[in-house]
Amino acid sequence: MSRARLNIFIEPEHAKRLDRLAVHKGVSKSAVVAAALASFLSPDDGDQREAAIAKRLDRLSRQFDRLERDQNVLIETVALYVRYFLTVSIPVPEGQQDAARAQGRARYVQFIEQLGRHLQRGRSLVREVHEEIEPEAEPLPVGQGEPEEAADGPAV
């Protein structure tokens, strides 16, 4: 195959990088430039890049949709709990407030410990709610719920 000779001028830094790359790859500088030029001029290159970007955007959109759904579940859970708590809670008499605060601190410590165990097992309230609401839906990706093996102990 015959090749056309070109005399080109490039920046000194580009020349240094070209030399290093050619030595590193064990090929001539002409081979590196030819490969770069072929890649740049390839009509499929733009299509491949666009397809890769579209695939990433689709994945990000699905992740965003899951985050939005999970956030809505969490917001509604907290709102429902607050409504329930405010409905059933009675005011604590002045003389019993110290005991109520101590009991509240103890319950909070117990809650944090149980939450820590729940999270260490990889369990997810959002996943459990999602599975109860839509049992036929495709399972959530790894990292979005609990592992396959069942965890022992009470769930939060």
Rank of each mutant, 00 (worst) to 15 (best):
G46R: 15
A106N: 09
E149V: 11
G104I: 12
A79W: 01
V82F: 06
R20D: 06
E50S: 12
G116T: 12
E68N: 14
K55L: 15
K55C: 04
P43A: 02
R69F: 05
Q96C: 01
F111D: 03
G104D: 06
L74W: 11
Q48Y: 11
D44Y: 06
N72M: 07
A22Q: 12
R101M: 15
E113T: 03
I10V: 15
F111G: 04
A100W: 07
V32R: 08
G26K: 03
D98N: 09
L60C: 09
V88P: 03
Q110E: 08
E94T: 05
E132D: 07
S124I: 04
A99V: 02
F85K: 01
A54N: 07
A54P: 00
A100T: 06
Q144G: 04
G153Q: 00
S28L: 05
V109M: 13
E136Y: 04
T87C: 07
E148R: 00
I53A: 11
F9N: 15
P12T: 08
D19K: 04
P141N: 05
L74Y: 11
K29G: 05
E68G: 09
A99K: 02
A4S: 04
R49L: 09
E134R: 15
R66M: 06
Q63K: 07
I133R: 10
V126A: 08
V88N: 01
K25D: 09
D58L: 12
A102I: 03
A99P: 00
D44V: 09
S28W: 07
V78K: 02
E146C: 13
V156A: 12
E148F: 08
F9Q: 15
S42N: 15
E148M: 02
P135Q: 08
G153S: 05
Q97G: 09
R5P: 05
A102N: 09
L140F: 02
A4M: 03
G143L: 05
G95R: 09
Q110V: 00
D152F: 04
E132V: 10
H14N: 14
I8C: 10
R20F: 08
D45C: 12
E146R: 14
R83D: 06
L18T: 05
D98G: 13
E68I: 15
D70W: 04
R123L: 14
H14I: 11
K55Q: 13
R49G: 03
D47I: 03
R127T: 05
L37K: 14
P154I: 01
S42Y: 13
V88E: 02
Y108E: 09
Y84H: 12
A31E: 15
P141Q: 10
R20I: 08
E13Q: 09
A137C: 11
E13A: 03
P154G: 00
R123G: 01
E113M: 04
A99N: 03
L115F: 13
D47T: 08
E68M: 13
G145V: 06
V32H: 11
I53P: 04
D65K: 05
L74D: 01
G116A: 12
G116V: 10
P93R: 13
A151Q: 11
V82A: 10
P139Y: 02
Q144E: 13
S30I: 09
A54W: 00
A100L: 05
E148Y: 04
Q144I: 01
R117L: 08
